[in-house]
Design a protein around this nucleic acid. Structure first.
Length: 270
DNA sequence: TGGTATGTTCCAAA
DNA sequence: TTTTGGAACATACC
């Protein structure tokens, strides 16, 4: 589920019900997800109060008082749920936080790839992250700097969290389509106008996805409506909304990739 | 049955 | 040093 728009949606949804609450218990059914160990994480957070809930890249960041940070990364299939007294338990519950008002926050994760981290030093975990694409600092000049001297293929560069924090496979494909750029272009060969178009495309695609509360993806994430508005991702063989050509799929950096072959030429131009 | 999957990380090789 | 490809993590779905 989780790219920047989905994580942002989750943070906005859960913030009012978590900020101001104190953790009174923590338990895990899949200890490998917790770092450091489950007992150390429990000692670190129980008795502490959530003062802020924020997003950095694809991480959900709980700021605690006394000072400390609880970070959750959903990876492929993680999601939050509230425990309900009736209705039985959701599937794939891996971790449970009990709050001082009696509510229980569940971390469900079918594939067990998600990560839960306690740290005193936030920068130790996310210090190497790149620019937040929706913040002021993400200017065309900044993007030009990030691409300069990089012989790398454009798509894997955009997926690299140390370059730009928060883009994943869906929105990278969408942004490249909107910008009219082929995913295999060499990053340092974009012309200034193309860099500007790419920066604009990334921001508009992410903003639209947040407005639609993210992309629902079968059993892993529900609630968003962006899946009905994707331009290329998952639309192999369907007509391009701009030119009518059939959307093609290819592999780039071991990731499924979707393009309009006419609107995203490999050569120059478009 | 086999191929695919919204993510990250480690390793080897070019 | 930079970049790329492959495997691993573990499970569900079609």
């Amino acid at each position: 589920m989780p790219e920047l728009p989905e994580v942002e949606t989750i943070v906005r949804t859960y913030r009012p019900r978590l900020v101001g609450r104190r953790f009174v218990a923590f338990s895990s059914r899949w200890p490998k997800q917790a770092s450091p160990s489950v007992p150390r994480l429990r000692r670190a957070i129980v008795g502490r109060t959530v003062t802020r809930l924020d997003r950095r890249g694809k991480y959900i960041v709980f700021q605690l008082a006394p000072p400390g940070f609880l970070l959750v990364h959903l990876r492929m299939s993680g999601r939050f749920e509230w425990a309900a007294e009736h209705n039985g338990e959701p599937r794939h519950v891996r971790t449970i936080w009990t709050l001082d008002n009696g509510n229980r926050l569940l971390f469900c994760d079918a594939r067990k790839f998600g990560r839960i981290i306690y740290t005193d030093d936030l920068s130790a975990v996310i210090g190497s992250f790149g620019v937040e694409p929706l913040e002021r600092g993400f200017t065309s000049a900044r993007l030009r700097e990030l691409l300069r001297g990089r012989a790398r293929q454009l798509k894997p560069l955009l997926l690299d969290q140390s370059v730009i924090a928060g883009l994943g496979n869906i929105y990278t494909d969408e942004a490249l389509f909107v910008a009219g750029l082929h995913p295999l272009l060499r990053a340092d060969q974009l012309k200034p106008g193309q860099v500007t178009a790419l920066r604009q495309a990334i921001r508009s695609v992410l903003r639209e996805a947040i407005r639609r509360q993210g992309t629902s993806f079968d059993w892993a994430y529900l609630g968003g409506r962006m899946q009905d508005h994707l331009r290329v991702y998952g639309r192999t063989g369907e007509p391009c909304q701009r030119c009518g050509s059939a959307i093609q799929s290819l592999r780039v950096a071991q990731r499924g990739t979707h393009i309009c072959p006419k609107c995203q030429p490999r050569g120059r131009k478009c």
